[in-house]
Design a protein around this nucleic acid. Structure first.
Lengths: 145, 145
DNA sequence: GATTATAATAGATAATATTATCATTTGCAA
DNA sequence: TTGCAAATGATAATATTATCTATTATAATC
């Protein structure tokens, strides 16, 4: 999704396009691939835009989440982290969290279709999104065991 | 797992069996089925055991998690919640979270075997546990749409 | 295009949930 | 008993959210 498309979506839903939102949006887009925390984003943005407050960073991140532009992640390291949503609207990868070294690896896709179908059939629950975390030992730590 | 077995496991791993830990353990075992938050546990335990501090509740919950006696949950309602681990050592159900009414339903099992096997093969990652959250519309809310 | 009304947003900061710190207490082995 | 590492309670620190007043984007009007 391009920046312009996103700004249009904001206006369309009645949200305002503020300079702060654009700055934060640009920053996240420029740092895709990193799992940034609110405080990291705040500290690094503050250097060029010292007028932006921490609360606004939190609020904008929450808004970007609601708009499905980013995802909130939780790796149990004491703060939340966010990543760009690369595949429009849909969540398309899982996280492998090593319980030894704490590393986080992403794996593409999925294989959840049969699970979601079963939940639909047995529980009447319509699945719109999912979050999957796999805990275990990464390749490196496995060797050292 | 019985209480005695659990206390033995504590001693075996070098942890001490304190009265506070026993009180919290008993309370959780007596309220299985509820998804209790640390503050709820603290407030309700305080009535009969006013000497127990909030920090101890948090610490004991973290310990019980590490011992795989309970699970930490996150339903995005502003606090963490815990539930008894019914199937020893292994995580055996997923959560369906309705994004309309906020209800949380549990579904037994799994169908993750093929996913975990694939992760093992492609990433060399040994999966020891997983956490799956499915977001969507529950049966009731679906009707009202 | 400039002006104005207004609801949304921003910044500052108080409140809340959780974790870290530290001095004191306690379970447990010698 | 006694010694000591581990645990506790109190509370400071941190991450996040809620609150409240001032500011601002935007649509309507001139």
């Amino acid at each position: 999704m391009s920046k312009e498309m996103f700004l249009q979506q904001l206006r369309q839903k009645g949200y305002k396009v503020t300079s702060q939102r654009q700055v934060i949006l640009d920053f996240i887009a420029q740092n895709k691939g990193e799992h940034l925390s609110p405080d990291e984003i705040y500290e690094r943005i503050k250097k060029t835009n010292p007028e932006i407050g921490l609360a606004t960073v939190y609020r904008t991140l929450a808004l970007l989440c609601k708009m499905k532009f980013i995802h909130k992640l939780d790796f149990d390291d004491g703060c939340s982290r966010y990543e760009l949503n690369r595949h429009e609207g849909d969540h398309r990868h899982h996280h492998l969290i090593c319980t030894i070294c704490g590393s986080v690896t992403e794996v593409e896709e999925d294989l959840l279709d049969s699970l979601e179908e079963q939940v639909m059939r047995k529980n009447g629950f319509i699945v719109k999104d999912h979050r999957v975390k796999l805990y275990g030992y990464c390749k490196e730590c496995r060797k050292k065991q």
